[in-house]
Design a protein around this nucleic acid. Structure first.
Lengths: 224, 224
DNA sequence: ACAAGTATACTTGTATACAAGTTACATTTC
DNA sequence: GAAATGTAACTTGTATACAAGTATACTTGT
């Protein structure tokens, strides 16, 4: 049974940490779609009052993982198709961001991205899949932040917890498959950096497209 | 001083209605950026307890209208540039949705859209700007729903309240400018329907692009 | 006059209490 | 046996209470 990394829970409120824990359980299937969650039940399960649970429920509802109803919140879960849809949105957001990065100087950002990729290689060496997924998330977030578009960044923030959690789960599986696959993932990130460095709009477009198309394939294989 | 339509507050919780009221005040500038909101103060202002206010604050924070901090929530507001960014996102979402609608049969949806446009013309006759903005929002929502993409629909839901409120304010101003402008807005919607009916991907793409480009211009003129 | 420290008032996060409404089940009635 | 009714348990929405932390302002010492 997988647990949410306690390091990621530092400095956040009870409500947020309950949201993280429930989110993980919903995405990895411990809590199944159709199940009905009661604030009281969860509160007693976590040994807290309803207040933070209520906050967590609202968060998960905003993320589309559950649907709040008059009596109880029904779990919607995250099916394979849902994850593919998530990739669709990630593609929309990131291709927009990368196109925006094409104009303007972003040497420092690119330097940052390269450093992150180097760190990724280290996590492979030390078999730290948790850190890898964190870096992966940071990599894409850095690109979106660099686009300097508040609303787009906001869109990312509205899915980043889900994306991070999905990465946490899938990265763990990829680590089990050995280094070949991991190196391929890292190489994909390098290609993105190369694209950004070229400042060639067409090339960037193509690289992003390939990135998410390939991620989709990886996803399918990982499930089947 | 503009008030949030009471008809739109029916059947929703106190927390949501407080969110609607605050949202309007923030967007129309009654509450100015930089201002610090305290849960207690708002609770006494609205004559309620902190619980629903807290819920409203979380909602507004999720919408990017305020930023929750240790002491008080600072108002971020919605500048002209923010609204333009909002149009960027709307364009991304709706062009995606319309492209998706290009394939497949959507006669009933298109019939619905046409009906809405007819209703819009009625609201012009009876000078009901509130209903017009509501129909405008429903029109675009119908298209997004027709795309049958949960995540994209979710993205729309995360901005729909803001969009509706912005429409409420700007539509009110357009009504003051007379029927010529209004008929132009309605005509733009007709062009969208024509695009969808053609099922021609290129044409649809062009129509959506023109729609949001023109909306941006309208916005600029409306402010200056 | 100025710096340091303390007190005070206000903030959020969490817990608990209560009210109104919904669901499910048992009981009653036909 | 079946339908209707009433009741009991459980649900959320809102109000209130308390604790821990923070900023402000005042006081005190130099």
């Amino acid at each position: 049974m997988m647990r949410f990394p306690t390091a990621w829970l530092q400095g956040i409120s009870l409500g947020e940490s309950i949201a993280c824990e429930l989110r993980l359980r919903i995405i990895n299937g411990t809590i199944k779609p159709g199940e009905v969650l009661s604030e009281n039940r969860i509160a007693t399960d976590f040994g807290t009052s309803r207040s933070p649970v209520r906050e967590a429920m609202k968060t998960l509802s905003n993320e589309g993982l559950i649907r709040l109803e008059r009596m109880g919140a029904v779990v919607l879960g995250l099916s394979l198709q849902d994850i593919q849809e998530l990739y669709d949105v990630r593609y929309l957001i990131e291709s927009f961001a990368q196109q925006r990065m094409a104009s303007g100087n972003h040497e420092h950002v690119i330097a940052n991205l390269k450093q992150m990729i180097d760190k990724m290689e280290l996590t492979v060496k030390y078999k730290d899949s948790v850190e890898f997924s964190y870096l992966d998330s940071c990599f894409h977030e850095a690109i979106i932040i660099a686009a300097k578009h508040k609303r787009i960044l906001h869109l990312w923030n509205s899915i980043r917890h889900i994306v991070l959690t999905v990465m946490l789960i899938t990265t763990d599986e990829i680590f089990l498959e050995g280094e070949t696959k991991l190196n391929a993932v890292i190489e994909k990130h390098r290609r993105i950096v190369n694209g950004l460095e070229s400042k060639n709009v067409k090339l960037i477009q193509q690289v992003v497209q390939e990135y998410f198309a390939d991620s989709n394939i990886t996803l399918r294989n990982s499930i089947s």
